[in-house]
Design a protein around this nucleic acid. Structure first.
Lengths: 344, 344
DNA sequence: CTGAAAGCGCTTACAG
DNA sequence: CTGAAAGCGCTTACAG
């Protein structure tokens, strides 16, 4: 079947091209009679409007981009990202938008390819994962280019841009409070990269919880990690000499690394050291190890990000909006508290 | 900066629109002098051609799609997919193509959204993950629509389409041969879904190895899994009564599930039961558990898939081509053979 | 080597 | 409620 055009459909239906266009786009100023005639021809011929022509004429491509800065490219295989992508993709499908995926593998790659993203005029808007290196280059560029965008994760300058995030400070606070309630005294933490807002926020939640319970903060109990399993392992190695009785890892992957280190060190969990993570990505082996953790609704985060972006694209920006989703404590066995009531 | 058009650039450079177009597209029939003048204006103004207009006029969008059928959507968070996506994305960046990502979450979703993929005229070609349900609906549709495509994983009818794959039969064969060389006698397997070609191929590799070594095949030692951790766990539960002394799991995730089952059962690895997997995705916790496994070059698979697709798009189809990548045995500790020489 | 012109397939004021 | 016409920003024969 050769590709049909509006013109072809118009001819067969005995109306003008404009009328067919209006029917296709659901305008309501069409008589029932004509609409049905056109619809029937479309049905019979299997006509589909050409995306490029539509984009050119209407200045809307119905394509949005997802940008993962190079600073997160090494982490892309962390279950967080596939789940996020799943939520985003689902939401795009539902809204008849196409998703363009950009994962930059290096700073070079990012520089070379990013400019074209905004200047090709191909995208109606973009979702950007918040940069782990604390740079705002991409976001600033988007602001300048007036490209509608939503940041995933708290941006550096939250006043200026729309974003979606989970409540990391509260989540971390709840994790540590859980440990406090169980009687742990020397609670250590393996943070995320402290250049990233997510790293900072989860550390702040840790600090808040300790302060609230009048448990002094020992800087020696804080080690920085990079969200990878290996960095969790390394950080835990350093913590042993500080004699922690519990550790809050800012991601499940790092918790997993910590667990590996603890076992290799000949200690047991939770008897010698309790472990609590952050993520609770479903279907991960981690959950099967009985890791007590903080659940974050990643799928929903992706969905909300799309929803917010589309509303900005369709209704204009106005003032930046943001959505912060709640987290939830999931008690399993690595803190030794299977029967405890959720203290939230 | 208001979006510039070819016309604007042409005016500033004192040439015609056609000439600017030729310079932008790297035609060689342009005098040095004129070319430089135009290039300078482009440089100064930061002109970028409009993607939609280009696509409309040239019938090339420079966008390719990646389609994940709904049958793999539950598995999308298996590390295999993010790694594949990473390879694909990298390759697209290098070749100045944009990647459109389609993950269908249900059969319904697939039906509703798939037709538009081929008829929007937005994509120059697509990469399709081979369907785990054994249907060829998508591939057949692509064939009919004459949309250039490359299947990832062996398709049902390999004669008709271009595809990239890893040598699953050999990989599985090597895994099982490794177990045979170590003296295991009752080697069981947890297969992938036997409706999928990858499930079939890895099982066939298992069968081949047993036959080659004159170790009769006991159907009771074969359990079907679905690539998930939980399915590996369940399959292992069923195998205990058959007294296997080793198990070849057709994916690392399933191997991980098997390991969990074995430990819960109070048995040890590899003393009571040896375990070997398939995947060896880097940075996965699995590798840190010392899982002996078959390495498959997923990143490269993605890169090759893109390369092949682009060559089909640019040079026409001719006869279907295919690329099959080698796998590699990675010896760690779950088969009790740290010192053994790779028998390949 | 370069330009004028047609055309890609739509949308959208403008009329009526 | 519907049509004729201009325009979106490119590419690409066709001439010269």
């Amino acid at each position: 079947m050769p590709n049909l055009t509006l013109e072809d459909v118009a001819k067969k239906a005995g109306v003008s091209r404009s009328t067919v266009s209006r029917v296709v786009n659901g305008f309501d100023s069409i008589s029932e009679d004509v609409r049905n005639r056109v619809l029937k021809v479309i049905e019979e011929t299997g006509y589909h409007p050409n995306a490029a022509a539509r984009a050119l004429a209407s200045h809307r491509s119905k394509i949005i981009g997802l940008i993962l800065p190079h600073s997160v490219s090494m982490l892309f295989t962390d279950p967080y990202y596939p789940h996020l992508l799943k939520g985003i993709s689902q939401s795009c499908n539902q809204n008849q938008y196409t998703l363009a995926f950009f994962l930059f593998s290096s700073e070079e790659d990012e520089k070379v390819n990013f400019t074209s993203i905004t200047s090709m005029g191909l995208l109606d808007g973009v979702l950007v994962q918040s940069d782990h290196f604390g740079k705002q280059r991409i976001v600033n560029h988007l602001l300048e280019a007036k490209m509608p965008h939503v940041v995933i994760g708290r941006p550096r300058q939250p006043e200026k841009v729309s974003f979606v995030d989970v409540d990391n400070v509260n989540g971390a606070n709840n994790a540590v409070t859980h440990l406090v309630h169980l009687g742990y005294q020397r609670i250590s933490t393996i943070t995320g990269p402290l250049q990233s807002t997510v790293g900072i926020d989860r550390r702040d939640g840790y600090l808040n919880a300790l302060k609230k319970h009048a448990l002094g903060v020992d800087p020696e109990l804080i080690e920085e990690g990079y969200f990878t399993e290996q960095s969790g392992y390394n950080a835990m190695q350093k913590l042993f000499s500080k004699n922690p009785d519990a550790v809050f890892a800012a991601s499940d992957m790092m918790a997993f690394g910590a667990i590996r280190a603890i076992r290799e060190h000949g200690l047991s969990i939770p008897e010698d050291i309790a472990v609590i993570g952050f993520d609770d990505i479903p279907l991960t082996p981690l959950s099967n190890l009985g890791l007590t953790t903080i659940h974050q609704p990643v799928n929903e985060l992706g969905e909300q990000a799309v929803r917010l972006l589309l509303s900005i694209i369709e209704n204009g920006t106005e003032t930046p909006q943001n959505i912060v989703l709640k987290t939830r404590l999931i008690i399993r066995s690595t803190c030794g508290s299977d029967n405890l009531i959720d203290p939230q």
